[in-house]
């Protein structure tokens, strides 16, 4: 028998690791990956609570987010030649 709070604890741990990654990494691609990790932690908790309809919507939004995000990153890389997150501060108007 699986302990009751186990999925909540696991989801929280994964979410925290993802947040930590977003805060300490400087490579935008990795930051985007850590956001995916956070979304998955939320999915895990959601599946342990209710029917997984919302999980499908989160997956759809994640797919859209990644494709648009990576296209943006590729665009910025073409312009500045780097994916350091600090170059994104130079994007104006």
């Amino acid at each position: 028998m699986i302990p009751t709070y186990s999925y909540l604890v696991l989801g929280c741990i994964l979410f925290s690791i993802g947040t930590l990654g977003v805060l300490i990494r400087r490579n935008v691609v990795i930051v985007l990956m850590c956001i995916e990790l956070m979304l998955n932690a939320v999915n895990l908790i959601l599946v342990s609570v209710c029917e997984p309809v919302f999980v499908f919507f989160i997956m759809m939004v994640a797919a859209v987010e990644v494709s648009v995000g990576l296209a943006l990153i590729a665009r910025v890389y073409r312009k500045f030649g780097t994916t350091d997150i600090s170059t994104f501060g130079q994007l104006k108007g």
Binding site: L10, I17, G18, L20, R25, I30, C34, L37
Partner: peptide, 9 residues
């Protein structure tokens, strides 16, 4: 899951 997540970061 936890080990590989740490490895990602």
């Amino acid at each position: 899951a936890v080990v590989s997540a740490l490895s990602v970061v």
